[in-house]
Design a protein around this nucleic acid. Structure first.
Lengths: 255, 255
DNA sequence: GGCTTACGAACAAAAAAGTTGTTCGTTATG
DNA sequence: CATAACGAACAACTTTTTTGTTCGTAAGCC
């Protein structure tokens, strides 16, 4: 086996726990090659992130089906593809534009891609706010709201009021599911309401999404595909679905 | 001379540049005992913080008179006293209260003191937002607004709208100057407007300030002392001024 | 209640990350 | 064109973080 960095082991543990439902400390130590003490420390971290629940001797999964995996994990998965998608989306934005930037890991990469650009950005997640607060070229606007733990996505009446008070050139929207049949969908109801408000306040809407989400549909409906002016996805996107999206009047970019 | 940590040298450089207006790289290297390469790296950092402007061969100060020193420096000065003041202020807040927390380094310490407490907090600075976003016990509310570089204090119409939409039990307000004659004053006009809005939305107002600020007065008037229900300062506060504050109807705590 | 097992604090060792100084090719400025 | 300053790259060093071990304590089980 190769090297074992800390983050790598955390992912391995999370996977094992999610799959089996619950796993003992000794078993995880054997699986990862680390000592039991290290496993305990890891489990403490994951418990604090809300990924799993600790009990004496092991841990059980807390990740519900119908909800995505925790933020810290998703942000590492498919980073390569997300970066390419983000770069493509950033290229669609012209200097001087005002942009509302959705929450989620793909949009966080868009924030990184916008560092150093002369644009006005209102991010809907504190992660993106933190990235852009170090970028002197960017005019940063913070929306009000209540941040959801770990995800740090802002939602609630304050967020919707902030969006309603402004008009943007472009909205960059992430999603949990996107296809021609069901439109753009999200797991969280509050999140969906915020996305709708962001779309309503923008002249142009760009959806960013990994190819995997083109075959998924989540609980909350946000907008039909006809509301999206462009979709940026990666090269793994299946031809049939991109054809359907194009037929629905959207420009599809594959990065 | 004693040891020379990185932060220590940065403060030394900032002081020298502020005093002389502009200083050469070679001179700073002689002054600090570090190599020129290290000085260049330091100047790069300080330039990014907006403390100074780099030119070939040296740097000139960007810190205007009438404005305080940069955030990164202030946050280290008198940390001990600030912690005591913050602990005292946090003790005045009961569990379950809703609190609006002003920007500034002293209020940032109050945020740290509130970690783990069961309270609802709306901080007016992103630094405090970042501290409290890792505190699961705290219900965090983020106000909208435009963050000022480095300081990351939120201001502008979005901030004032967020404050106007809510009513708090307590406002914890920092200041640049505070005395019975001139009331509570701030350097920045936008900041002053936000402070006023925070006070207007709160039932109770606690001002936190180091003793040094009791002898200062800044540009923008925020509120008369009569609007403050309590002032928390440190033991270095001069008796005459605390007496005048008490006479004006404020409870003075010395931590 | 007594036995077993897991836990976590404390310390030591190891690994990773950050700092600093040196060298040297590149670039700005007079 | 000459000079001085700059900054990338590397190595030596320092600091911080991570990991494993030991051991006393406490939780669960019979």
């Amino acid at each position: 086996m190769g090297v074992m960095t800390g983050t790598d082991r955390l992912r391995q543990i999370t996977e094992a726990v999610c799959e089996a439902g619950s796993v003992g400390v000794a078993e995880l130590a054997r699986l990862t090659g680390a000592s039991e003490m290290t496993i305990r420390r890891d489990l403490e971290v994951l418990a604090a992130q809300g990924v799993l629940q600790r009990y004496r001797g092991g841990a059980r999964s807390l990740v519900l089906r119908g909800e995505g995996p925790p933020f810290a994990l998703r942000s590492q998965e498919g980073l390569e593809a997300k970066r390419r998608i983000a770069a493509e989306a950033a290229a669609l934005i012209a200097d001087g534009e005002s942009v509302v930037l959705d929450s989620g890991t793909t949009c966080l990469e868009v924030a990184r891609a916008l560092e150093g650009r002369r644009v006005t950005v209102m991010p809907l997640s504190l992660h993106a706010v933190n990235v852009l607060s170090g970028a002197p070229e960017v005019t940063l606007l913070v929306p009000g709201g209540r941040p959801r733990p770990a995800e740090l996505a802002l939602a609630g009446p304050l967020t919707e009021a902030s969006l309603a008070a402004l008009r943007f050139d472009t909205a960059v929207i992430g999603c949990c599911g996107l296809n021609a049949a069901n439109g753009l969908t999200a797991y969280d109801l509050d999140d969906a309401a915020v996305k709708r408000a962001a779309i309503a306040s923008s002249r142009r809407v760009i959806a960013v999404t990994e190819a995997a989400k083109l075959t998924r549909t989540a609980l909350a409906h946000v907008a039909p595909v006809s509301a999206l002016h462009a979709v940026v996805t990666d090269t793994a996107a299946p031809d049939e679905e991109t054809a359907r999206l194009t037929a629905a009047g959207t420009v599809v970019h594959r990065a």
